[in-house]
């Protein structure tokens, strides 16, 4: 039982460190949202599961509150991530410049009103493709 608790806690800490490194290194706000909200959810769930097993096995104390905290994190974290992504999109936070498709913007603005920056970017990408060929 000690080895199971050790594996759970150490893997949880490892995923949390990966999430923190991802928040610093990734280039764009939407990518940082992926790393922060989702990887840290898995890491913290593993740590809390390890703590729950420790209290159950060594102190003979069944703590229901920890299981409730795990369910709470799984329900609330994707809701918060979705709200942040939606609010960033409607406040015109720029996506990373190598973004391939942008169908959401096309469907919301309409075909005729593409901004001039998008037209320039499309032209640059065509020139790069011609240079590669």
């Amino acid at each position: 039982m000690s080895s199971i608790i050790a594996i759970l806690v150490l893997s949880g800490v490892f995923f949390s460190i990966i999430a923190a490194i991802g928040v610093v290194r990734l280039p764009d706000m939407y990518s940082r949202l992926h790393a922060a909200s989702i990887s840290s959810t898995l890491g913290v769930s593993s740590v809390l599961l390890g703590v729950f097993l420790y209290f159950w096995y060594f102190n003979n104390n069944f703590e229901m509150t920890l299981l409730l905290a795990i369910v709470l994190i799984f329900v609330i974290a994707p809701t918060g991530a979705h709200m942040l992504a939606r609010s960033a999109f409607h406040s015109d936070v720029e996506p990373y410049k190598l973004t391939i498709l942008n169908e959401l913007r096309r469907d919301e603005i309409g075909h005729e009103e593409l901004r001039e920056e998008d037209k320039q970017r499309a032209e640059e990408r065509k020139k790069e493709k011609e240079l590669e060929e």
């Binding site: 995923f15 990966i18 490194i21 280039p27 942008n102």
Partner: peptide
């Protein structure tokens, strides 16, 4: 969940990041 977390870990830990994000319907 576990498989996709390992994918994100590989993306973050490389020395040079080349990601191509995108929106799709």
């Amino acid at each position: 969940l576990v498989i996709a977390n390992i994918t994100v870990m590989k993306i973050v830990l490389k020395p040079k990041i080349n990601v191509h994000p995108g929106f799709y319907a």
